[in-house]
Amino acid sequence: MRELILHILDIIENSREAGADLIKLKIFEQPEQDSLKIFLEDNGSGIDKDKIEDITDPFVTSRTTREVGLGLSLFKEAAERCGGNFNIISKKGKGTEVMVEFSYNHIDRAPLGDIITTLTSFIAVNGDSIDLMYRHKFKNREFCFDSREVKKELDGISIQSGKIIGWIKNYLKDCFAEIYGGED
């Protein structure tokens, strides 16, 4: 995967298949501390205790289960390749949490990529059934987005409608401009 957001999209697809209706995504960029952290949390069906040990082993997982494949192993590998680490916690029936840390300035770290297109496409397809809470921090500035807050205003109209997705795109664009403050 050439963008970290594609790994995120991949993990979110696991959440969708696990029946989650709320996904929380946090991205914390701290270049001065050489740290990039990504947290993903869902309220899906969770993973069995005996499976979680092997979940990032591509040979074990891809053979035994359908719902969990190569995705987690690839994400883990991407983090470890550039001096980072990967953690997963899951409770059957409660949900799953994935935490990944990268060395921010490592030469092999993939860029975050096109976050806005990726997340808004996901909402355009799944927004009616799955909510997304997204928090992004860059240095000491941050923003939050919560699809449930948007839905409150929509009063029954689908969040998946093209015009609403367009609004979310612009909203996120403004948010990014604010936290990056001119520098990218």
Binding site: L6, L9, D10, G69, G71, D114, S121
Partner: peptide, 14 residues
């Protein structure tokens, strides 16, 4: 939109 799809470019297809 499995891992295979995303790795092959499904995000841009979508």
């Amino acid at each position: 939109m499995g891992t295979c799809g995303i790795a092959a470019g499904a995000r841009d297809i979508l």
